[in-house]
């Protein structure tokens, strides 16, 4: 199991907009919301019949993997001792092409399959943003492709620090985040996609203003834990991973977990005066 704990590495980058950190959160797609639903049929998998709660509830017809402990199908080593490695240059773990073996990948150009395809970020109100997402098999090729797309979408939004699969039209329990660039990050795991993440511990609660890529123009003061432990699996290898996050990264991850439960930050606003117009954006 990977255990990602805090580090305080590279110098923080300046905000792309040069504005106050408060305007930089896990939002950013102000111009990319409100479009048509994304076709998710390509990612659909079949439910398992085992009924065992410990089994992945969805299991796709994927080719057998050679190993669950070696190099991941994404081509990157799973040997990643937490946050001790460089946060800057390492490719994202578990987020790449599973080897070109899936039918979904066969439909893609090599460039797309290697890096994922940025997808449209859905804007509220949208049905997929209000339903509970389904757990998935982290080793399924479709899930690996979805993880790559999620990450590619995250990368295409420079002022967005996290996304959840429902935001790109997939009601699956996948989140992607990268809190390295946020000036209020204290430590960070780097760029990461986690399948079936679940919150195991939360403490040190605090209020802060946050926005969302799926909600243009609004922010709110939301109370969240500033220290959390999250368990999940890496896409491709399916290797269990534990993330211990704090500060902004913890907030970002909790925000994405809410998306998987069909919740928006609006559902956690503590009072009428805590809802705010977003007067300026970083991605303008």
């Amino acid at each position: 199991m990977l255990r990602l704990t805090g580090r305080r590495p590279t110098p923080r980058r300046a905000l792309p907009c040069g504005r106050d950190p408060a305007c930089f959160s896990f939002w950013g797609a102000s111009g990319a919301v409100g479009g048509s639903p994304v076709d998710s049929a390509r990612y659909r998998t079949s439910p398992t019949e085992s009924g065992n709660p410990h089994d992945p509830p969805f299991r796709a017809a994927c080719p057998p993997r050679s190993s669950t402990t070696g190099p991941s199908p994404c081509g990157h080593s799973v040997k990643r001792p937490g946050r001790q490695e460089s946060a800057g240059g390492e490719p994202p773990h578990g987020c790449r092409d599973p080897g070109g073996t899936s039918s979904a990948d066969a439909e893609r150009t090599p460039g797309e399959a290697a890096g994922g395809t940025p997808r449209e970020v859905l804007g509220a109100p949208h049905r997929l943003l209000s339903v509970v997402a389904e757990p998935v098999d982290p080793t399924a090729p479709e899930v690996v492709v979805a993880a790559a797309d999620l990450l590619a979408t995250l990368r295409s939004e420079p002022s967005t620090a996290g996304l959840a699969a429902p935001q790109i039209g997939l009601s699956w329990r996948l989140i992607a985040f990268d809190a390295r660039r946020h000036p209020r990050s204290r430590s960070w795991a780097g760029e990461l996609v986690v399948v079936n993440p679940r919150l195991a511990a939360a403490s040190h609660w605090d209020h802060a203003r946050e926005g969302c890529a799926s909600i243009a123009g609004l922010t709110a003061d939301v109370r969240r834990a500033t220290r959390i432990t999250v368990h999940g699996h890496l896409p491709g290898s399916g290797e269990p991973v534990t993330i211990e996050a704090d500060a902004f990264e913890a907030r970002c991850i909790q925000h994405q977990l809410d998306h998987l439960d069909g919740l928006l930050f609006l559902d956690r606003v503590p009072g009428a005066l805590s809802l705010h117009r977003r007067l300026h954006t970083c991605d303008a």
Partner: peptide, 17 residues
């Protein structure tokens, strides 16, 4: 005892105490 409503695009939001 307190209420804010906001319209942002198609999204209508109401928060009330």
């Amino acid at each position: 005892t307190g209420m804010s409503t906001r319209l942002s695009g198609r999204l209508y939001v109401l928060i009330a105490d």
